[in-house]
Design a protein around this nucleic acid. Structure first.
Lengths: 138, 138
DNA sequence: ATAAACTCTATAAAAAAAGTAGGGTTTATG
DNA sequence: CATAAACCCTACTTTTTTTATAGAGTTTAT
């Protein structure tokens, strides 16, 4: 399951996507809309900013805004940023690979093979769907 | 990511599948093969037994054995048993459904829609692949 | 100058995962 | 029938991860 962090990130991005007409959106507006803790959301938006997905404006009248076109924000990117690996096993992760401690030979591991298939099916959706696809359906 | 519990369950099932010629297999043999704590594995095997995947024989000379044909042990079943939901969000889980606290309308939720697609792609593999497919590749 | 708003780091609390302990029950065998 | 082997069951502890909070700092409009 996705962490709340990731889920909240998607909600926040959706909110920002819906309000692209205004220059900036306040953290507290997003937090209020979804009943999320202001401070918790703050950390999430900051991560999205550092990753180049959001921009911000400091000071009075400031706030956050989408810096990218929604179609260029792949769902996989958001998940990896907040949650880490998408794959179900470390040994099949493309971005967070680690060998399984108990595994003698990855090449001869049947579990490894099937989990590669699962990963690829997941990525087939998550890499090709974007924030724009979420916005389309709201 | 899958929990260690689930990963160990798959390893144990694989081991049992490979040793179907012998009547029973000892917990300690599986634990030694993969470097897993005996007691931790014990709990896992017990859950698999209660779920009807494994059988056991008590007393001296006892042990565990596969009670089903490997092709009838869907990967999804093992994951749901030990890890719970396969879906990435509670609101799209078929077996462990829960509404998202912050979500006003599931029908109007774009995230919900896309996560249903991810779930279905995952299940397309996990429901149709079985222990037999893992064994085939070892 | 002041208040609004994001920035940053650290810490605390809660929940989940991983692992441990130990006595109970069953059974083969000498 | 005594004994040792092996699974059965429940509870507990430890560790890790997730979730949430706190508070001081920086920037900017007015």
């Amino acid at each position: 399951m996705l962490s709340k962090k990731t889920k909240y990130a998607f909600h926040a991005l959706t909110y920002l996507g819906k309000h692209r007409d205004q220059k900036t959106v306040l953290i507290q507006d997003i937090a209020a809309e979804y009943g999320i803790s202001h401070k918790f959301l703050e950390n999430i938006l900051l991560e999205l900013k550092k990753a180049g997905v959001l921009g911000s404006k400091k000071g009075k009248g400031g706030g956050y805004y989408l810096i990218k076109d929604p179609k260029d924000v792949a769902l996989s990117k958001v998940i990896r940023l907040l949650d880490g690996p998408i794959a179900l096993l470390p040994c099949v992760s493309l971005n967070y690979y680690e060998p399984c401690a108990e595994c003698k030979s990855e090449v001869a591991c049947g579990l490894n093979k099937v989990m590669i298939q699962v990963r690829d099916e997941m990525l087939n959706v998550l890499e090709n769907k974007s924030l724009a696809d979420i916005l389309d359906k709201e």
